[in-house]
Amino acid sequence: MIRFRYLRLLRRHPSALLLVVQLLGLFLYPAMEDTPDGRALFGAFGILVLALALWVVNRSPAINWVAWLLALPALLGSLLGTFAEIPHLLMLAQLMEAALYFYTAGSLMAYMLEDHRVTSDELYAAGATFTLLAWGFAFAFSVCQQWYPGSFTAAVNPALPRSWVELLFLSFSVLSGVGLSDIVPIQPQARALVMLAQFAGVMYIAVVVSRLIGLTLLRTKQGGASDGQA
């Protein structure tokens, strides 16, 4: 009985499951990127996140075939690139994954802005949208440093390419507005991407998050007024 209750909850709030899985990935990624077995697990985990992103976009006002058009090449490229060790194919897969995450984030933002009510699912969607943007820009940074070697540097091993965890850390840093951390873009293309991420983070907080907060406060105020009249 409890199991069916949780299944119903997940069907009602798919954004919550996507958010939990991506936050779980923050703890798993550091252990998965240094060994061949870990990289295989990294690819499998990425497929799981892709599947959840498709599930979420299927329950929001988005065109499903666009999501599948982005997801299928990303899935095939990720599998072949990881297990056959074809760097260019893996780079193409990461580019498609970035596009899918941005598309899913856009569809969730449209879902949150389509009415004047704030539901619990929209609050989960707000968190999931931020993580989708973070993942999308991290993949974009990864593609950038493969196309333009030396795009990013850091205080530790400055000449080496940045790892996935480092690029994801950079993505969270610039989207949240806390700064560039210890990862610095030095090529013009990388700086352009970082500026886009900064703009996206500021606009997301200014337009979507502030609107959800305003509607929640308005609903609380109206509820208090109704209780006072009663």
Rank of each mutant, 00 (worst) to 15 (best):
residue 64 N to C: 08
residue 73 P to K: 15
residue 72 L to S: 07
residue 83 F to A: 07
residue 62 A to D: 01
residue 64 N to Y: 07
residue 83 F to L: 09
residue 74 A to I: 12
residue 68 W to R: 15
residue 81 G to E: 03
residue 80 L to R: 05
residue 72 L to T: 10
residue 77 G to D: 01
residue 65 W to I: 12
residue 74 A to N: 10
residue 86 I to G: 06
residue 66 V to M: 00
residue 66 V to H: 00
residue 84 A to R: 05
residue 75 L to K: 04
residue 62 A to C: 06
residue 68 W to V: 13
residue 64 N to F: 10
residue 81 G to A: 05
residue 76 L to F: 06
residue 61 P to N: 13
residue 80 L to Y: 05
residue 78 S to G: 15
residue 65 W to H: 15
residue 69 L to H: 08
residue 86 I to H: 04
residue 83 F to H: 13
residue 70 L to E: 00
residue 82 T to C: 02
residue 75 L to R: 05
residue 88 H to M: 13
residue 86 I to V: 13
residue 67 A to Q: 04
residue 74 A to W: 05
residue 66 V to L: 01
residue 66 V to N: 00
residue 79 L to E: 09
residue 81 G to K: 03
residue 63 I to E: 07
residue 89 L to A: 11
residue 75 L to S: 10
residue 77 G to F: 03
residue 66 V to G: 00
residue 64 N to E: 15
residue 88 H to P: 03
residue 62 A to H: 02
residue 80 L to N: 03
residue 60 S to I: 07
residue 71 A to R: 02
residue 86 I to D: 12
residue 78 S to R: 06
residue 68 W to L: 14
residue 65 W to L: 08
residue 86 I to K: 04
residue 60 S to D: 04
residue 65 W to F: 05
residue 61 P to M: 06
residue 88 H to G: 07
residue 61 P to L: 12
residue 80 L to H: 03
residue 89 L to V: 13
residue 82 T to F: 03
residue 70 L to A: 01
residue 73 P to W: 15
residue 85 E to L: 10
residue 88 H to A: 04
residue 82 T to Q: 07
residue 81 G to P: 09
residue 89 L to H: 03
residue 63 I to H: 05
residue 61 P to W: 14
residue 78 S to P: 04
residue 68 W to A: 14
residue 81 G to W: 03
residue 65 W to D: 10
residue 73 P to A: 15
residue 88 H to K: 09
residue 81 G to Q: 02
residue 88 H to C: 11
residue 70 L to V: 08
residue 67 A to E: 01
residue 66 V to A: 00
residue 65 W to E: 11
residue 76 L to S: 05
residue 60 S to K: 05
residue 63 I to G: 04
residue 69 L to P: 01
residue 85 E to R: 07
residue 85 E to D: 08
residue 75 L to P: 06
residue 83 F to D: 09
residue 81 G to C: 09
residue 83 F to P: 13
residue 81 G to F: 02
residue 67 A to D: 07
residue 76 L to N: 11
residue 78 S to Q: 14
residue 76 L to R: 04
residue 64 N to W: 09
